[in-house]
């Protein structure tokens, strides 16, 4: 019944002695949230993939099934999966080497289309006359499917390699042109007014205002373009032959290696995904600060 029963000093003492004892967070403590986050992101897709593989195994396990189950794919194509870089000469190469050949074509074709696309887009975006002249042409040509260009480019170049590169170029260039033009046309009027007040030269106006203002649009175009060129190269290689992942798929089909095709498709998908991600990352790094107002 005493109101001042608990004496203060012991409480103080307890607090002061317990404070230094509190240990610093260990490495596991600090890593735990990160690990939890990574697990939360990774576990759902892994579960789904596991489920799909199980359904696939079950669905194609009957002797009359037309497609091989995952276990057969593993048995048939173990070497393809585990050793992507073997080379036995000719076309008997690992998938890594086929992909590398395809990626080289994409690199050349896409680089050309990026340069030409950005340049043409800038022209169309900044000149009304150029837009009126070129836009109808672009609108018609961009609907032509990539492979429809192949016979014409084979006739023109008379060789497989430049023809494939041309097909990539002509596929990827349209979204780059169109997005660049939209970006240039959408430079805010305020920036134009600022530039007029400080009397920027046309060259500086272009370099210091138009290019950075249009950069987010340009990178959207480049990202769409790189995806399209990966689509186009697989199809083009099926027709022109030689080393390349597209021809590998066609070759496997001709020799009824369904397992090889399945493995190749997985590789194509992963590479396409990585290309898209890489482009998005470059875009984000370059346009940092530009798109945020």
């Amino acid at each position: 019944m005493n109101a001042i029963a608990p004496p203060a000093p012991p409480a103080d003492l307890a607090a002061s002695t317990s404070a230094p004892v509190r240990r610093a967070p260990t490495l596991t403590d600090r890593l735990r949230p990160h690990v939890q986050h990574v697990l939360a992101v990774i576990i759902p897709p892994i579960m789904l993939i596991g489920l799909l593989v199980a359904v696939w195994e079950w669905a194609s396990s009957s002797p009359t099934a037309s497609l091989p189950p995952p276990s057969r794919v593993w048995d048939d194509a173990k070497e393809l999966i585990l050793n992507p870089f073997y080379d036995r000469g000719g076309l008997d190469k690992g998938l890594g080497l086929h992909l590398f050949a395809s990626l080289q074509r994409v690199a050349v074709g896409f680089a050309l289309s990026a340069v030409a696309g950005v340049a043409l887009g800038m022209l169309v975006g900044s000149s009304r006359f150029a837009m009126r002249a070129l836009d109808p042409l672009f609108q018609v040509l961009r609907t032509v499917p990539p492979l429809a260009w192949l016979p014409l480019s084979l006739a023109a170049f008379r060789e497989a390699q430049p023809s494939a590169i041309f097909v990539i170029f002509i596929t990827a260039v349209w979204p780059i042109i169109i997005n660049t033009a939209v970006g240039v046309r959408n430079v805010p009027a305020d920036y134009r007014n600022v530039a007029r007040v400080i009397r920027l030269s046309p060259f500086d106006w272009f370099l210091r205002i138009v290019v950075p203002a249009a950069a987010p649009y340009i990178f959207t175009g480049l990202r769409i373009g790189v995806g399209l060129s990966w689509l186009a190269i697989i199809a083009a290689e099926m027709l022109i032959g030689g080393v390349g992942i597209g021809f590998f798929v066609w070759d496997a089909w001709n020799s009824s290696n369904l397992s090889d095709i399945i493995v190749a498709l997985a590789y194509i998908g992963v590479v396409g995904f990585l290309l898209d991600r890489a482009m998005a990352l470059v875009g984000r790094a370059v346009t940092r600060g530009t798109s945020e107002q």
Partner: peptide
């Protein structure tokens, strides 16, 4: 009116 600073 809306500052018009260049964001980059």
């Amino acid at each position: 009116q809306n500052h018009s600073l260049l964001p980059w």
